[in-house]
Amino acid sequence: MAKTGTWVTIILVLLVLAIAASLFLRLRPAGGTIAEIYVDGRLERRVDLSGVTVPTRFTVETERGVNVILCEPGRIRVESADCPDKVCVDFGWLQDSAAPIVCLPHRLVIKLTGDAPIDAEVG
């Protein structure tokens, strides 16, 4: 049986590592203004947020439900959704962050990339 102190040390080391990694990921910019919307892992839509001049709204509908997505210059969010937990709506604006917006019930992911917009469409 290991001493309690050993366990506390292991947990503390893990905690510090995890906090450092979260801060690193939070501070690291996404490095792009292309918003990609995936459903079930398939690319559903690409929006070049730097090309958005007026607030634009569109819906992504799947057999699981509906997410209403709002684009503004440089940022994007899920405005409303009929999923049970509303985590995607509460996330708020996605803007220069490596962490994607996720709606797990609807299997919808929105993330920013800096890839060259080959087939970018606005709105």
Binding site: L25, R42, V102, R107, V109, K111
Partner: peptide, 9 residues
């Protein structure tokens, strides 16, 4: 489920 490895962040 979402085939999105970047959720690892």
């Amino acid at each position: 489920v979402t085939s999105t490895p970047s959720l690892l962040v």
